[in-house]
């Protein structure tokens, strides 16, 4: 599998505006939640009381307990799990769903595929550009989260922070690969944003429902969120390397399957 530099840089340029917008949203959201933590922490016992007054099922669904908001990392983990991974996932998965199919939808596939490159080179290059975009959003968010932790918090449990971010990266990569695969089976004329949001929110809520209701706890097994904890419940949060490796292998398999599908696709025009 080879790549084409001209196409790679063209893809990055083509997606730069979207990447900038989504990165700004994610970074602004990260800073916003970290900046409000000091006010919450000053409320001390009131917050602990508030947390203990939450219905048990609700707290379980969101991975929260009485200690969750007693530290900046616990406070951040609630939002990281619910919003930040969802936002990053929606951006990278929707980009992944369209990065190849967009050429077909816009009629530019005829231009691109008649150049002297194999389809494999084109698809591989586009996947590499997608990976770069994911890395840009993810690393920028991580950088500003570290900065925010240092500005607004003290006694940060960096081990928990690293775990959350490793798990977040694996989840976002998994959703992106899944979006690439399903888009390769569907018409490029579809608007993929709905299915992408549905897939990510659906996975999140399946896990939340499974955690909240013991009778349907089996539902959690079909959600990737089940395997990678993002919230520091009872102060414990460890990297689940086994699940990380399995989900990354599944992501690579999905990318490979999507790649193979695109190679066989007819460009009807």
């Amino acid at each position: 599998m080879s790549m084409n530099r001209t196409l790679y840089f063209k893809e990055l340029k083509r997606n730069r505006k979207n990447t900038l917008i989504w990165t700004s949203i994610v970074v602004a959201f990260t800073f916003l939640i970290l900046s409000i933590y000091p006010s919450f922490s000053q409320m001390g016992d009131q917050m602990t009381e508030l947390m203990s007054s939450l219905p048990e099922e609700y707290a379980r669904a969101l991975g929260m307990d009485e200690g969750t908001w007693s530290s900046i990392i616990g406070f951040y983990s609630t939002y990281y799990g619910i919003y930040i991974t969802l936002l990053m996932g929606i951006f990278t998965a929707s980009t992944g769903a369209t990065i190849v199919g967009k050429e077909e939808r816009d009629g530019t596939a005829e231009f691109l595929l008649t150049r002297p490159m194999t389809r494999s080179t084109i698809v591989t290059t586009k996947f590499l550009a997608l990976g770069t975009l994911l890395a840009v959003v993810y690393s920028t968010q991580t950088f500003f989260a570290v900065l925010g932790m240092n500005v607004f918090g003290d006694d940060v449990l960096w081990r928990h922070f690293v775990t959350m971010h490793v798990h977040g990266f694996v989840l976002v990569s998994f959703f992106t690969a899944a979006a690439v695969l399903f888009s390769s089976f569907l018409s490029p004329k579809l608007n993929y944003m709905g299915p992408v949001v549905g897939m990510i929110f659906g996975s999140f809520f399946l896990d939340a429902i499974a955690k909240a209701t013991e009778q349907v706890s089996w539902l959690g097994y079909i959600s990737p969120y089940h395997y990678l904890q993002l919230q520091a419940e009872s102060g414990s949060l460890e990297v689940n390397w086994g699940s990380c490796i399995v989900l990354m292998i599944l992501s690579l398999i999905m990318l490979k399957a999507g790649h193979a599908r695109y190679l066989k696709r007819d460009i009807v025009g």
């Binding site: 596939a109 005829e110 595929l113 008649t114 389809r119 066989k264 007819d266 460009i267 009807v268 025009g269």
Partner: peptide
């Protein structure tokens, strides 16, 4: 167009 697209590798 089908003949041309096949010639150019757009169709298999």
């Amino acid at each position: 167009s089908t003949a041309i697209r096949t010639l150019l590798g757009l169709l298999h």
